Simulated assay, not measured.
Amino acid sequence: MKWEAENIEDLIAKFIVGEASEVEIRELNEWCSLSPENQKYLDDSVFIYENAQLPDQQDFDGEKAWDKVKSEISKKNERTRLLIPAWGIAASLLLVLAFSFLFYRQYSKSEEFQFVSENQVLTQTLPDQTEVSLNQNSTVKVEYNERKKTGVIHVSGEVLINIPESKKVEWRVQTANLLIQDIGTIFNVKAFPKSETVEVTVQEGIVKFYSQSQEGIILQAGEKGIYDKSTNTFFKAEADPNVTAYKTRNFSFYEQELQLVIDQLSQIYGRKINLDGNIGQCKLTVDFENEELETILSIIGETMSLDITYDSNQIRISGEGCF
């Protein structure tokens, strides 16, 4: 049969050592196109062959090694002696594959590392220069395979993920049974275990937000995807322009109620802020770029004619209200 295992091994061996004809190369390509597993088998074989000579075996001679094995076989049965005229190199490949198995298993293992943020935002850079910024009380566990150029980022909490434009690694993000497949570059994942929802906000590019049992949704820049745990459904909403403010300290408020503004500032800066009087529904339009909380509140106070009072435990904002 055309695709018998022995025939495939012969094709792969010839291909790796450069002895395959054009017809044989076409046959091998056809076999690889049948399934991802076939392509992976070829890729793994090439990798093993190229990396089989360990540092203390730089002068490894495949022909001599094979001759030694062949002579041992001959001692047991002279009639089964193997000859390797033009196939010496190809035969040595099979020997290399066998004796390199443990080396290959060790080399191909995924790296695993974990980042934990508690009371502050934490930014870490992954081996391919992908940047992950953890909001407070968040955890990221990373599984990374350098050889395969693949990785999984497990998220618990809130994380901003910035993948370089070069995109050298195929990253997938996972939180519980939900998955985010990166097709773009910058997106935020909000997945606190006790929350009833999981949110994915895309700043640049495109991502696919789905589960192990559902196709999910495609999100583009400026969109937010929400998964409702109670109903097991996905839906879209307009992205919050301040979703990454916990990292950037950049804010953009347009006709936003003061109470919502203060709630967000209180959460990000970790300070208790109370509003006194009927001012919570007053609307505010303003932008801030990486300012200290005191500066932001001072500008809000001047803009809206409000009084700001500081004490050791909290900040109080008071005024006459809106008209």
Results as ranks from 00 to 15, higher is better:
residue 270 G to T: 14
residue 115 F to V: 09
residue 34 L to H: 06
residue 316 R to W: 07
residue 54 L to C: 12
residue 49 Y to V: 01
residue 223 E to H: 08
residue 209 F to R: 08
residue 285 T to Y: 06
residue 103 F to V: 00
residue 226 I to C: 08
residue 190 K to A: 11
residue 187 F to C: 06
residue 264 Q to N: 15
residue 8 I to T: 03
residue 90 A to V: 07
residue 52 A to I: 10
residue 53 Q to M: 14
residue 69 V to M: 11
residue 160 L to N: 09
residue 221 A to E: 12
residue 16 I to G: 10
residue 199 E to G: 00
residue 301 G to T: 09
residue 254 Y to M: 09
residue 116 V to M: 02
residue 79 R to L: 12
residue 72 E to P: 05
residue 196 E to F: 08
residue 126 L to P: 03
residue 293 L to I: 11
residue 285 T to V: 04
residue 10 D to I: 11
residue 314 Q to K: 05
residue 31 W to T: 08
residue 16 I to E: 01
residue 105 R to M: 10
residue 226 I to G: 07
residue 253 F to I: 13
residue 107 Y to P: 01
residue 256 Q to A: 15
residue 182 D to N: 12
residue 113 F to D: 01
residue 16 I to Y: 02
residue 143 E to N: 11
residue 1 M to S: 11
residue 157 G to C: 02
residue 114 Q to G: 13
residue 95 L to C: 06
residue 259 Q to V: 12
residue 144 Y to S: 10
residue 80 T to V: 10
residue 182 D to V: 12
residue 268 I to A: 06
residue 181 Q to E: 15
residue 2 K to L: 07
residue 118 E to S: 08
residue 117 S to A: 02
residue 282 C to K: 02
residue 208 K to V: 06
residue 61 D to R: 03
residue 265 L to K: 02
residue 123 T to E: 13
residue 227 Y to L: 09
residue 303 T to G: 04
residue 224 K to H: 00
residue 85 P to L: 09
residue 35 S to D: 13
residue 63 E to S: 15
residue 69 V to Q: 07
residue 40 K to L: 15
residue 29 N to F: 07
residue 239 A to Q: 05
residue 291 E to I: 04
residue 109 K to N: 10
residue 235 F to E: 02
residue 68 K to V: 07
residue 119 N to W: 00
residue 16 I to S: 04
residue 321 G to T: 10
residue 310 Y to P: 00
residue 76 K to S: 12
residue 9 E to V: 09
residue 105 R to L: 13
residue 267 Q to S: 06
residue 104 Y to C: 07
residue 172 R to N: 08
residue 253 F to V: 13
residue 109 K to S: 05
residue 104 Y to P: 00
residue 59 D to P: 03
residue 2 K to F: 14
residue 41 Y to I: 11
residue 126 L to I: 03
residue 107 Y to V: 14
residue 251 F to I: 05
residue 87 W to N: 15
residue 33 S to Q: 05
residue 246 Y to V: 00
residue 60 F to L: 12
residue 163 I to S: 03
residue 197 T to N: 09
residue 104 Y to E: 05
residue 15 F to S: 09
residue 307 D to N: 10
residue 237 A to F: 07
residue 123 T to N: 10
